[in-house]
Write a protein that binds this DNA or RNA. Structure first.
Lengths: 151, 151
DNA sequence: ATATAAATTTAAGCCCGCTTAACTAAAAAG
DNA sequence: CTTTTTAGTTAAGCGGGCTTAAATTTATAT
């Protein structure tokens, strides 16, 4: 029991530091691309989850289909994503990152990784091994959690 | 060397999962409060770093002083933050969270913590202990890193 | 076959946040 | 003590993103 409390404390402290830092970097990055937050988020989601349709966009971002359409339009015009007909339903569209889009978001990720690389350098070999193991466990559990529940 | 590569891989995987999840939650929360992203960010920074002046706001968010003033205005009118004269410089203002504001952002944090609590329940006692230790190391190093460098 | 529903787009208009410009007040510099 | 610089506010106007409303095309239901 007390172990669980300690754990909660540790992870919350880490979240606070990590979030605080990441959010700053992320906001700056979004601004540097000249794209809106939703546009960057959309591209990240395409990268993370793969292709999706228009209606999914409007649900995820909680905007009207019209707004989603306009959002996507600009990314298509900038050559970051590609909008093609869904072969299974010709009313629907399938959105995908282009090479250009993929490159852009990977750059953004690199930027965020940089901070962590600095962190890495401050650790001893033993600490790295220990943390690496710990994070792998968390990633596995988190991924499972993401997959299983309906919501 | 190879150990460092493994570490980098582990932490990046974790970041991806964590960021993806956190960003969603954070965006929803910001929307649910009816406040803009900048407004929520501002309150979080006040909570995290403590009081600050107007000019700091406009620098951090990269907006004009005019914009900062308007941003703050709405939060003051909603009773989330308090704007008082700086006793050391009567031109300047000191911004602080009110109890109401503090409560709001703590609620938001709780919401984000909830996911992690789910995670916690999926872990064994040993795993928790191990992860807890690992995260404490990272938090310490990250905090040091935040403090020392000029930029 | 016809009617209805679903997926998306286009156009018009609104709102909100940002900027520029002009202003007030206090501190620092000369 | 005047001048300049610094901190912040106020007002007017612009632009971007979102919404509603209407149209288009394809799928589904009766």
């Amino acid at each position: 029991m007390t172990n669980s409390v300690q754990f909660t404390k540790s992870i919350r402290s880490w979240m606070d530091v990590f979030m605080h830092r990441s959010m700053r970097g992320w906001g700056r990055y979004a601004k540097s691309t000249g794209l809106s937050i939703h546009q960057v988020s959309l591209m990240m989601q395409l990268n993370y989850r793969g292709a999706c349709g228009m209606s999914e966009i409007s649900e995820r971002f909680n905007v009207t289909p019209a707004a989603a359409s306009q959002l996507v339009d600009k990314l298509v015009q900038s050559g970051y994503i590609q909008r093609e007909e869904d072969p299974n339903d010709r009313r629907a569209k399938l959105l995908n990152l282009t090479d250009r889009g993929r490159k852009l978001i990977h750059q953004g990720m690199e930027e965020r990784y940089r901070w962590v690389d600095e962190l890495t350098q401050k650790l001893t070999e033993e600490e790295r091994a220990q943390i690496s193991e710990a994070l792998d466990i968390m990633t596995r559990v988190a991924t499972d959690l993401e997959a299983e529940p309906v919501q």
